[in-house]
Nucleic acid binder design. Structure first.
Lengths: 201, 201
DNA sequence: GTCTATAATGCGATAGAC
DNA sequence: GTCTATCGCATTATAGAC
């Protein structure tokens, strides 16, 4: 008797999962280049080499595909935990900014979908609402820790600073996409340096 | 002989100009709510009470209408000159942020079109490229004046600070659209206070 | 200037054969 | 699971009557 039954079933499931994955990768590229509204299922199907109707076998609607793409984005751009023994909070953010810069399509995708998210009936509006709420909470918590460690500069409003980190980061990405002479990580680092004292070594 | 011939011709021209204006106003609302890609000429025509083909008599293509809407946005959100005897640079920006907040659709329009602007073949990509370049130049010039007046804090990189003001402002607008408990003007004021000393009264 | 009619294309989604 | 065929509808844009 097998102690692990999964290998028997892995064949077809793995193949289907692979297919789904390649569809999501193609949709990632299409939505990054043309947006959700501007990209079509046919574009995605062409890129993955299948018919548009076959694609709908895996994702019953375009909105479902959008959700899958955004979940994939979270994996691609995963920061890892904000807790890190070797790097402090500002360093983690700056490293992440530099990393994201090198992932093709990542910033394009985020910027265009984020802009579309404020339109009526947008299928992923919730994603962005929750994302922003979560980031504000996480960054606020990190800033409170730094405050407790005496590393926050005087007079900084923590909640507004958390919002501002996210805002600055998002906004600078848009400028960078339109003019890559803008130094995203440096702008972010400048701001963090204004509100956080360097760690005592 | 008339000393001023314009009144004779004002009738038909004024009417046509009025019509164009009402079309641009309607398009402003449609693009603000649904984006450029998501909004249709039919939506605009319905709102202004004319046929879609008549609309194309005034604006030969959808892209032309988009350009007209963005020019209209510049008028609606006109800061006036950054030179002001009674208000300093940070105050002018903060006042503008508070003013914009009260103009229906203004921030929605800007945010969604700005996001779309990074997509392929976008008809208004130039508008945003040039807008950002201009704002960075203008803000840099103002920061240099403040530096000369001894009001810039030590260690501020002027070009990056100018980019960051624009970025923070744009980014905070997106968050505000998705959660209006975010205080846009306060976040902007906080940042300006970090890089600029208060004026001596 | 405004309209109807329509061209020409594209869209997301469904039905059903294989 | 994949396809062809197609539905039903929307889109931008053009032609031409009035």
């Amino acid at each position: 008797m097998d102690t692990d039954a999964r290998p028997r079933r892995r064949g077809p499931y793995a193949k289907s999962a692979e297919r789904r994955r390649s569809i999501v990768d193609a949709a990632f590229e299409v939505f990054a280049a043309r947006g959700y509204q501007g990209g079509s299922l046919q574009d995605v199907a062409d890129r993955v080499g299948m018919s548009q109707t076959s694609l709908l076998h895996y994702f019953p609607s375009k909105a479902d595909l959008l959700v899958a793409v955004l979940n994939r984005r979270d994996v691609v751009a995963d920061t890892g935990p904000l807790e890190d023994e070797t790097r402090d909070f500002p360093t983690i953010l700056i490293d992440q900014a530099r990393f994201n810069e090198g992932v093709p399509g990542l910033i394009e995708l985020y910027t265009v979908l984020c802009g579309e998210s404020v339109t009526e009936h947008y299928p992923a509006r919730d994603y962005f609402e929750h994302r922003f709420a979560r980031l504000r909470d996480e960054y606020s918590a990190e800033l409170r820790k730094l405050e407790a460690a005496g590393r926050l500069r005087e007079g900084v409003d923590i909640e507004r600073a958390a919002s501002s980190i996210v805002a600055l980061w998002d906004g600078i990405q848009t400028q960078w996409l339109l003019d890559d002479s803008v130094d995203m990580a440096a702008c972010l680092a400048d701001y963090l340096g204004l509100i956080i004292r360097p760690s005592a070594p």
